[in-house]
Design a protein around this nucleic acid. Structure first.
Ligand SMILES: [Mn+2]
Ligand SMILES: [Mn+2]
Ligand SMILES: [Zn+2]
Ligand SMILES: [Zn+2]
Lengths: 143, 143
DNA sequence: ACGTTAATGAGAATGATTCTCATTCTATTT
DNA sequence: AAATAGAATGAGAATCATTCTCATTAACGT
């Protein structure tokens, strides 16, 4: 379980960290902001500080347990690192996030980086659009 | 010139706005932070406030004169909107930015969005890597 | 040149994230 | 199991980019 994941990183196994991983693991929405995690733990009766959440997330990221994404709109979102790399499409109305992986795109990226003389280390591909939910399609933008 | 661009947006033609467009237009590096623009204008002896720079950039963006990018690292960068859409690759060592456009990638994105039931409105693709400059390749990361 | 109205700049305010530091835990050693 | 050393925690201050407020100034149709 999470217990082992933590131990392997060299980080100490503490209640706040375990609860955070648990929270990230069982969330319906796999992509959570630091505050969302913080609030959920508070509501679950845990005693935790927002500083701890941010600090731990950064450590998890460094350890490869978690990935940080900067979608539009201020807050970063974090997701538990399961399975392989993927990219995202985000609904500009409801915030829904879907994941995808496309080998053709990945391949083209490698080719382009090489052609430009770069050693590719990372990339970020995020699409934004209107998802298929009833209130999301064909909205007029003015909020 | 910039004069006309501004008039077309409905924005008034003012000294700060003209200077900003001029600055964005003649910069060797096409991708500038708000502060970079602010500093350059100050150094050129212009009297301008940082608030004005941010405000005008947001207006330029809304008018389609300028594009805002959120690369890694806090500050947004802005670039004058010439030519057609393109994506970016950024050197993680020296910050150099190269641009590219790949129809195959664009096409796959449209197909993926459709398959997932999204109406695609926008996207962001940024690669990060080590560029070909002497001090950028094969660096050890610890800063 | 005048008047209306938008634009400006200084500084305060905001929001996300990080830092500081005194206190509390973990894990390891007696 | 008690003792220890060092890491982790939480509250609140601090930071950083960006936006807001508001009194003053500038743009431009008349
Ligand atoms: Mn994901
Ligand atoms: Mn560009
Ligand atoms: Zn939606
Ligand atoms: Zn470089």
């Amino acid at each position: 379980m999470e217990n082992q994941d933590l131990r392997n990183t060299g980080l100490k196994v503490t209640v706040p960290r375990l609860k955070m991983l648990e929270c990230l693991g069982k969330a319906q929405d796999r992509h959570l902001t630091a505050e969302a995690i913080y609030r959920q733990l508070l509501e679950a009766g845990e005693e935790i500080g927002l500083a701890t959440v941010y600090r731990a997330l950064t450590q998890f990221e460094a350890a490869g347990l978690v990935t940080r994404h900067h979608f539009e709109g201020g807050q970063a979102v974090f997701e538990l690192e399961r399975g392989p790399h993927h990219d995202h499409i985000v609904c500009i109305h409801c915030g829904r996030v879907e994941e995808f992986y496309d080998e053709a795109i990945e391949k083209r990226q490698r080719a382009i980086a090489k052609k430009l003389g770069f050693i590719l280390r990372d990339h970020t591909l995020t699409m934004y659009g209107e998802c298929s939910r009833p209130n999301c399609q064909g909205q007029n933008d003015e909020s």
